[in-house]
Amino acid sequence: MNESDIFEVVETEQIPGAKFEVVQYKSLKGSDNLYVAEKVFFANKADIHLKMIRVTLERSEILIEPGALYFMKGDLQLKSDIQQGLSKGLMRKFTTGETLFQSRIKGSGEVYLEPTFGHYSLFNIEEDGLIVDKGAFYCASADLEVTAKMQGNVSSALFGGEGLFQTQIKGTGVVVLVSPVPTAELLIYQLKSGEKLSVDGSFAFARTASVEFRAEKSGKSFLQSATSGEGLLQTFTGPGMVWIAPTEEVYKRLGAFNTSMYPVTR
């Protein structure tokens, strides 16, 4: 059976020497375990697909999270090192949750990363870098640099809901991020210089580095903020782009409801 009979490509980004694809199984055929077969049946009915990242290299190189490799085919070499040296690697690990070591795959061939029922988003970075949620980085073309970015002001660090550091991706190339929701559910806003986007929650997924982020009161005073029921808002000021995931909080509430109704037992 050909791969095209099993997989379908749902998203693609390409640069010279590397093509990044999100591929998904058209359907899962089941299991000899009845419990697993039941889960597979409902996953198929709910249109939930098992996905993988496939990267096709032509005398090129990619950077992946250690442990993400599933299998690869072709003239390819795998090695691990500490990106940007030990000090920067330690800073990235302890401030953003990214790993100390990064794996690199170099050569020509096809690389498949571990399958998941989760979601991926592909970004082609050309000029302005990206600032993303901690732990969102999954893999990238080798010319990109993954570092820790300290929040630019006290309000965003203490009250913004994102912590003191986030992950910054700089350079030119393609990066694959683990998305909290399907890519089709991400809203993208292109902000003009000085234009604001205010979010009541922590569901802003990514922004270009030119966008300023801070936590602001929803009203002119703390009293107004308290009486409005909104409190502090995540505020993004252009110019630049912001990706938000409005359905993320809904899925979290549904997951919490399911856990309370049907507690997990060991």
Rank of each mutant, 00 (worst) to 15 (best):
N2Q: 05
S4P: 00
T12V: 14
I15L: 10
A18R: 10
V23S: 02
Y25G: 12
K26V: 04
S27E: 14
L28R: 02
L28T: 04
K29H: 08
S31E: 02
A37H: 14
D47N: 11
I48H: 04
I62W: 01
L63H: 14
L63Q: 10
P66A: 10
G67A: 04
G67T: 05
L69H: 07
K73I: 03
Q83E: 15
Q84L: 06
S87N: 11
G89C: 09
K93N: 01
K93V: 00
F101E: 15
Q102H: 10
R104Y: 07
G107L: 05
L113E: 04
L122C: 04
F123H: 15
E126Q: 10
E127D: 14
D128P: 08
G129H: 01
I131V: 00
C139D: 06
T147W: 00
T147N: 13
K149F: 06
V154R: 15
S155A: 14
G161V: 05
I169Y: 02
I169S: 06
G171N: 08
G171E: 11
T172C: 12
T172V: 15
P180F: 00
V181M: 07
K192A: 15
G194S: 03
K196C: 11
K196I: 07
V199S: 08
F205N: 09
T208G: 02
A209R: 01
F213H: 09
R214C: 05
K217H: 09
G219Q: 01
S221T: 15
L223S: 14
L223G: 12
L223I: 14
Q224W: 04
S225P: 00
T227F: 13
S228R: 07
E230R: 15
L232M: 15
Q234S: 11
G238Y: 02
G240P: 11
K252G: 04
K252N: 07
T259I: 10
M261A: 11
Y262E: 06
